[in-house]
Design a protein around this nucleic acid. Structure first.
Lengths: 312, 312
DNA sequence: TTGAAAGCGCTAACAT
DNA sequence: ATGTTAGCGCTTTCAA
């Protein structure tokens, strides 16, 4: 592979001049610049990104921290991020944690070493305070409401939408609601938000037995619904954490032949349309888009992305 | 951030020795090794990946080239790749092309500069021969049947499965089949495979008007089906390039109120289960998994991933 | 077993 | 306008 030395040697100019045509073309005379550019093209030369990064102390990568990419919630956000990154020339690298703090720490250290120009924490295990410690090394953006913590955030106004959704559930006459989630309220801000909205509308705490954690796929939804239907037949509404999951719930109740409860999904995917189920649209692609743009420019900002309740 | 110099200075040993405890611990005396490791831990030291990469001429990244990550086909493969990469400590970076050769060239140059230990071409625009030119710089794996080209490949046996699917269509009595695809046969090997399988079973060429290109979402499927239903009412079977797309086709015919044709999807997603439509399961996560493993170890190999026709 | 030093490809002062 | 040079953090001969 051709290096900057090769083009310097061949053109007869110095390293510095060649470097200048790459980084500050205006400083070099048009004629020599043309000559150097021609040779670069001939040699099919591209600056080595690693060397550049090492010298500059920065890269054109953004790291995206997330537990996995199975769940549609994460997949949609990653979609938005890569779309936004594409025209900018930034690369996005996926940093899966499998819910393990250790990996998050590892990624943070790599960040500190300037491997990533910015990081997006789509999800995190580490305390927010730990992340805040790293903002001095570059841009970190979180995808949650962080209050007035000194860290950039992009988040959806879940509370408002969850309340609207529960109000709809209440008005429809449902009184025995079960919730499905990825992780319990002790681990997940989303689950806490959801429960708080429930309490706000129903004026009571949710029966702990009516929250089923560990649900992330249609199959999980199916299993959870089977459990609920057999152990707690009074349940008349199931709020699922994803449309495909909602579809799994639907299938389980249908197969058991018991009375179908009301079901709600989230993410506004195809499956809720097909089954004509209400859902919540978090506009996750938009969220990803914004998160990327925050990740590549300095400054601490907080941005809200509105979500919608889709009644059906 | 602590560098190797810091730990050398603090421990009183030389750079070389510290480097050795990182890379060849057996060469350094147990006592000095312990001492150095303790200081490393205290300083929270991690080797700088860029510097390491520059020095070594290699990275622990694999690049995944694909047009975009919207289509479930790509999303599923990426899922498989990241899952396989996780336990190995390799990073995966997404390299979207938007179907533009220029970007593929750019990525190939970065590869040549050792930015990526391996590359996976989930899709490509560049001629295969161009890719083959780069295998001497590292592992490149393509996700298609490349015959005896000297490049590693992982691909699904589409032909067999497509034939089985068309045979099923034939046996069910359908005689007027339309096909939906991302890109026309002139650009897409998948489409060519599909058409060849059609010809094999039906003993005739597909009427060109009965192939609708540019279909990649449920909405596209909906629009294509509307067009087909109104311009060519004889059509009695629609083969869609995705289950969600098949669902769009279903919706279009249903809304028009005309006789519902047979419909088949691919990828075995939830939507085909819900609508009870036959589909093809390409086992794309498995394919991604294998692709990753091929990408990180040298050698040219070809591997077939079996796909299934799911009759419904 | 440990140390010294060259080099990976590039950038950015600083000199000319 | 162009050249020279000292790093960026690390690995790896080669010596001691």
């Amino acid at each position: 592979m051709a290096t900057i030395h090769d083009v310097a040697r061949i053109t007869g100019f110095s390293l510095g001049t060649v470097s200048n045509v790459i980084n500050r073309p205006e400083r070099v005379a048009p004629k020599t610049r043309a000559k150097i550019e021609r040779v670069m093209a001939e040699l099919n030369y591209t600056p080595n990104a690693m060397a550049r990064g090492l010298s500059l102390g920065q890269s054109r990568n953004v790291g995206v921290v997330l537990p996995n990419s199975h769940h549609p919630y994460f997949a949609h956000i990653v979609d938005g991020i890569t779309d936004a990154a594409f025209p900018t020339g930034y690369r996005v690298t996926l940093l899966p944690t499998n819910y393990d703090e250790g990996f998050e720490r590892q990624y943070l250290r790599e960040f500190q070493q300037k491997m990533y120009a910015g990081m997006i924490f789509v999800s995190r295990q580490l305390p927010l305070a730990d992340l805040v410690n790293y903002v001095r090394y570059g841009q970190i953006v979180t995808c949650e409401n962080v209050g007035d913590m000194k860290i950039t955030s992009v988040y959806s106004d879940r509370t408002t939408t969850y309340r609207a959704a529960f109000r709809w559930v209440w008005q429809r006459g449902y009184r025995n609601v079960a919730l499905l989630g990825l992780r319990g309220p002790e681990h997940s801000e989303t689950t806490r938000d959801l429960m708080r909205a429930y309490e706000y509308v129903f004026h009571e705490e949710l029966d702990p037995d009516r929250f089923r954690p560990g649900v992330s796929s249609r199959q999980d939804g199916y299993a959870a619904a089977q459990y609920l239907a057999t152990t707690d037949p009074k349940i008349d509404f199931v709020m699922a954490n994803g449309d495909d999951i909602a579809a799994g719930v639907y299938a389980a109740y249908k197969e058991l032949g018991v009375k179908m409860p009301g079901i709600m999904g989230t993410e506004n995917q195809l499956s809720s349309q097909l089954l004509h189920l209400p859902t919540i649209n978090h506009h996750l692609e938009t969220l990803g888009h914004i998160a990327f743009n925050q990740a590549i420019r300095p400054g601490i900002r907080h941005q809200l992305v509105k979500s919608d309740f889709v009644a059906r």
